[in-house]
Design a protein around this nucleic acid. Structure first.
Lengths: 345, 345
DNA sequence: CTGAAAGCGCTTACAG
DNA sequence: CTGAAAGCGCTTACAG
């Protein structure tokens, strides 16, 4: 343990902040009545309500969340948990958009979002301790790999949990929200075929992720027997990994005329590799991506890609989590993708 | 108010979790002794300590954070506040890296990070309410524009606060951590000059941000009288904005032979614009960026840029905030940048 | 509709 | 070194 581990913040300033007692005194009512006004105002006379509201204003009262939490047994916040080893998370705009969308959706319920990252066993233990201490009312879990231990742990402990992406290698009954990865991949590969391409390669995501598995499956659905092994390279969702996979495909299948890449970030890497090899996009090789993040508009040529409705995914994740926290059994929500045509294919 | 605003989570499962009382009973000591063991263990006999530790293990006890918080008047968490209007935040990897770095550094103090975004007045009010309710022990504030109202508000209320980037248009005495933007810009422009470029343009950040102002100042330091007005275009830190600014420069100064762009994301946009104009990078026009995020390695050609030590900035922000929470007066920390040479200049 | 009272689960002087 | 007790600031049956 590093010495800093024991450093904890000191109390804030003075305890001169007004409490519910001060408000009650100012309004000339009991603390119970103040509390009732603050919590929906059932069974409160208009006169009492007005007096309390006025007193809240004049005293500048803000309820103490810890006290409220202690009594209600609700944390009043939700954890957003990223389970990935690398910094890769922040290389790919996908996560940021999701994070932002969840933050916004939660804000409408006045719930803040606590960010937890858990790439190492130590971080996993910390995240679990945090949630199971009751610090969060529920967990939004992003990027779980096959058999992610925290998914199982939270599922078993009854922690309200919603995943982003179809769970792989987990017990059934886990709530999740995902784009229709498989159909999205089909849309892209069909598009490439309609444009006359036949030797269509693919760069997949990691095969222990739903985006890796399902987008490859969609590719195979459309390609059928044309999906030769030398046309498939496994990527890792990074830009550098996309470039490396492209170079490998160029060696294994030099006659390829198109490539479907399972993420925009990898597609940007692949386009770079094609440029360096002196291959023109889309004239020599067409490139299709997946995600439609800001990366897509920025490549040269701009990337034809499959749009995941990320803001909607985030909103649905929050909606589902709220329902589960309220006692619903959860669900799987699959959202449609759309093909976005730009210059690369 | 939307109806969902009133929806709040219900209590978690049963209150069957062990409390400090159960641990005390199991260990055969008082609750006070359990608490002392849990909080550093001063003045506790070895025997009592062992008994308590064993009891904690057998009962599976985890302290209730709300109860602890109520008593100690510490929130036990820190807010990471992003004050920007757009989704732009998540377009630029800079923020993600910072966020990740702060999360990791805080984790070493066992403090979770709560993400707050405040681009609109409504969000600002919410963020302020949140922090001033005592939900956070301090605030890490990123991307404050000149005169950002929340900076002033937190500073005045005595909330422990550390900014990322030099504050502009604020009272003095606000703690911050920043890269040496001005010197970093000088490094890049000097490099371009050493490579023989003379008509060096620049695309700045917004001029109400420190990165906008200070990197432009560094450019002017080196360029001197060669910094003609037609060589300066103001960008907005977005990829599209970088492209637009580049196109504008190409019109105002068609003879430019290099451009220093104040962020990698804008530089990527600028390179795209140059490609579309049929201008070769770096042969016709050299391009230098700023940040050294993952974007830099992904452009074609790879971007020569100025590295901001983002992980270190994050670590220093957390270190400073901890000190301020502990009662220190704060400080300004300026970290050196380094030139990273790749293919674009 | 409202007040008085109990209690959520901790921490921390205060005695001893 | 340790226990008994007070109290942090709320909410919520319970009476009335």
């Amino acid at each position: 343990m590093a010495p800093e581990q024991s450093r904890r913040p000191r109390p804030r300033a003075a305890a001169d902040r007004p409490t519910i007692h001060d408000v009650a005194a100012a309004a000339g009512v009991s603390r119970g009545t103040v509390s009732r006004v603050l919590n929906g105002g059932a069974n409160v006379s208009a006169k009492a309500r007005l007096a309390v509201q006025e007193a809240v204003r004049t005293t500048g009262y803000v309820p103490n969340p810890a006290a409220r939490s202690l009594k209600t047994r609700r944390a009043g916040s939700v954890a957003f948990l990223l389970t990935e080893p690398q910094e890769r998370l922040f290389e790919d705009p996908t996560f940021g958009v999701l994070l932002h969308g969840c933050t916004k959706a939660l804000a409408r319920h006045d719930l803040p979002l606590t960010l937890l990252t858990a790439g190492t066993p130590e971080e996993r233990a910390r995240a679990r301790r945090y949630v199971e201490a009751g610090h969060a009312d529920g967990v939004l879990l992003v990027s779980g790999r096959a058999g992610e231990p925290l998914v199982g742990a939270f599922h078993r402990s009854g922690t309200p949990l919603v995943l982003c992406g179809r769970p792989i290698g987990q017990a059934s009954g886990i709530a999740y929200v995902a784009a229709d990865d498989r159909e999205g991949a089909r849309q892209m590969v069909r598009h490439l075929r309609e444009r006359g391409h036949r030797r269509i390669a693919t760069i997949t995501g990691p095969l222990d992720t739903p985006g890796g598995v399902d987008r490859l499956a969609g590719y195979r659905d459309v390609m059928g027997e044309a999906a030769a092994p030398e046309l498939v390279a496994v990527g890792d969702y990074s830009g550098a990994g996309g470039a490396a996979a492209m170079e490998s495909l160029l060696r294994s299948a030099p006659d390829l005329d198109a490539v479907f890449v399972a993420s925009d970030l990898m597609a940007a890497g692949a386009i770079g590799a094609l440029h360096r090899a002196g291959i023109k996009v889309p004239d020599d090789v067409a490139v299709g991506g997946f995600d439609d993040t800001t990366i897509a508009a920025g490549t040269s040529p701009p990337l034809t890609t499959v749009r995941q409705p990320l803001p909607r995914i985030a909103a649905e994740m929050v909606r589902l989590l709220m329902e589960i926290i309220d006692g619903s059994p959860g669900a799987a929500v699959i959202l449609p993708t759309t093909l976005v045509r730009r210059g690369s294919a």
